[in-house]
C-alpha cells in the first residue's frame, strides 16, 4: 500500500468508497505495481478479497506483499483471501492427467469461444458466501472485493472481447451493486497509441469497453519523450461524474518512480533527477 497514492485518491483503508469499479490500464509501461497496491490496501481494510491472478504465481504476489507488510498466506488461512492461481490451474486443462480434474474456474480454456461462465461462477460463489452465510467463521470481514490482474491475457488465450466485457459486467453487477464491494481490474494494451484505427479487434477495444464501465481509471503509460531511468512513466487519474456532489473531479497526471518497497509520485517535471 502506497500512502502517496492514497492521498492522491483521497482514500484510506479506514474509509473508502464502496461500490466502485476501478480500472487499471497500461501502455508501453507496467501497471502491475498498482495491483500490488490495491491488494495490500484491501487486505488492510479488512475486506474479503477474491484475487484472480492470471499472469503471475502465488509466490510472486506473496514475495511482493511481504515487502509491503502484508502476509498473503496468513490472509488465506484466515479465510480473508481467496486466491485463484490461473497459471497452475490452466496446466491441468492444457495437460490433462488422470488423478486431478483441475479447478472448475479455468475450464473455459477447453472451449474459450464459449465464454467465461465458469470463471464468473467461481467469483460469484467466493464473494457471495462471504457476505451471506458463513456465520460459523470466527471473524467477520468487510465488503467483498474482486481483484484481477491482466484481463487482456484472456484474449491471448482465445476468449472474445465481448465475452470478457460480459464477464466484467456480471462481476460489476454482483460485487459493486448487489454487495456494495469493489472491483479492480488490470488491462494491458499494446504499443503505439491509437494509431491503428477501428479494425483493431483486441486489447484496444477491451480497454475502451472497460473504461466505459469503470468509475475510476488509472492509466499508466511510458513517458512521451522516451525512456528514462529515473522516471518510470506517468499515471493519469480519471474520475467519472460522482453522484454525491454532482461535479466533475479534475483529471490528474503524475509521474512516478517504482522503488524496492514503494512508489513515489510527483508532479510532471519535478523529478529529483532533473531538479
Amino acid at each position: 500500500m502506497f500512502t502517496e497514492l492514497n492521498s492522491i485518491l483521497n482514500t484510506s483503508p479506514e474509509s473508502f468508497t464502496p461500490g466502485e469499479f476501478i480500472l487499471l490500464s497500461d501502455r508501453q509501461s507496467d501497471a502491475s505495481f498498482l495491483i500490488h497496491h490495491f491488494l495490500s490496501f484491501y487486505l488492510k481494510a479488512r475486506c474479503k478479497v477474491c484475487f484472480v491472478a492470471l499472469v503471475q504465481s502465488f509466490s510472486h504476489y506473496h514475495a511482493v506483499s511481504q515487502r509491503l507488510g502484508v502476509s498473503l498466506t496468513q490472509a488465506k488461512e484466515k479465510g480473508q483471501l481467496i486466491f485463484l492461481e490461473g497459471l497452475k490451474e490452466s496446466l491441468s486443462v492444457f495437460l490433462p492427467q488422470e488423478e486431478n480434474a483441475g479447478h472448475q474456474a479455468m475450464s473455459f480454456l477447453r472451449d474459450p469461444a464459449a465464454g467465461l461462465r465458469s470463471l464468473y461462477e467461481f467469483v460469484q460463489s467466493s464473494v457471495v458466501e462471504s457476505s451471506g452465510g458463513g456465520g460459523a467463521s470466527a471473524e467477520q470481514w468487510g465488503p467483498p472485493v474482486l481483484l484481477m490482474d491482466d484481463v487482456s491475457v484472456l484474449l491471448s488465450l482465445g476468449v472474445r472481447v465481448g465475452a470478457v466485457l460480459d464477464f466484467s459486467h456480471y462481476c460489476r453487477t454482483t460485487v459493486c451493486s448487489q454487495l456494495q464491494g469493489n472491483v479492480v481490474m488490470l488491462v494491458r494494451c499494446d504499443g503505439e497509441a491509437e494509431e491503428d484505427d477501428a479494425d483493431d479487434e483486441g486489447s484496444e477495444q477491451l480497454m475502451r469497453g472497460l473504461t466505459h464501465q469503470s468509475c475510476l481509471t488509472l492509466h499508466v503509460q511510458g513517458l512521451p519523450t522516451g525512456y528514462c531511468r529515473d522516471i518510470h512513466g506517468q499515471v493519469e487519474f480519471c474520475w467519472k461524474k460522482r453522484q454525491s456532489d454532482g461535479q466533475h473531479a479534475p483529471k490528474k497526471v503524475f509521474q512516478f518512480k517504482v522503488h524496492d518497497k514503494g512508489v513515489s509520485f510527483f508532479a510532471r517535471g519535478t523529478s529529483r533527477a532533473v531538479l
Binding site: 504465481s57 490452466s90 496446466l91 492444457f94 474459450p112
Partner: peptide, 18 residues
Amino acid sequence: NVHALTSFLYGLRALLRT
C-alpha cells in the same frame, strides 16, 4: 491459429514457474 502460440506460451510459463 491466432491464439495457438500465446496459449502455448501461457502453458510454458505455468510449467516453468513450478
